[in-house]
């Protein structure tokens, strides 16, 4: 293979995520090569959480990306089908969590499968916190 076609492949294999913050923070666009995953150590390698944290974008992940909390909840506006299918464990958790949408995924579990994925992901303003953080009475 010539150097030229290698370079060509390199560009074609970049994926892109546009991240929209519901709280009004300016949106961000990340380009990355899924083959380089993991980008850090929490969540599934190549997951939305992995890519975001690895690119300096904070997404909450209270259970360490272990599919046990839903604080990494994201809404996938575009590119839902380019993500790996949700496992039974992820479905079980989504099933129990209130307030999620049909295009919700857990950022720590949703792995970007397509090497040229184009995703638009919304990070919700509110994170569901099941029990507490109620003000002191």
């Amino acid at each position: 293979m010539s150097d030229e076609s290698n370079a060509d492949n390199y560009y074609r294999l970049m994926s892109r995520i546009r991240v929209i913050f519901e709280n009004g923070e300016p949106e961000r666009v990340i380009e990355f090569d899924p083959a380089q995953a993991p980008f850090q150590h929490d969540g599934q390698p190549g997951s939305i959480l992995d890519v975001l944290l690895g690119n300096g974008i904070w997404l909450e992940h209270a259970c360490g990306g272990n599919c046990a909390c839903t604080t990494c909840h994201v809404i996938v506006k575009r590119g839902f089908d380019t993500l790996g299918e949700a496992s039974e464990q992820e479905e079980d958790l989504l099933d129990k969590a209130p307030g999620l949408t049909p295009s919700s995924r857990l950022g720590c579990q949703a792995v970007i499968d397509d090497p040229a994925a184009e995703l638009v992901v919304v990070i919700p303003r509110y994170t569901i916190n099941q029990a507490a953080e109620r003000p002191e009475r």
Binding site: N23, P124, R125, Y126, T127, E133
Partner: peptide, 13 residues
Amino acid sequence: MPDNVVQRGARRV
């Protein structure tokens, strides 16, 4: 805002 939700970035430490 219902009391079971927390604004992004405002989680109490």
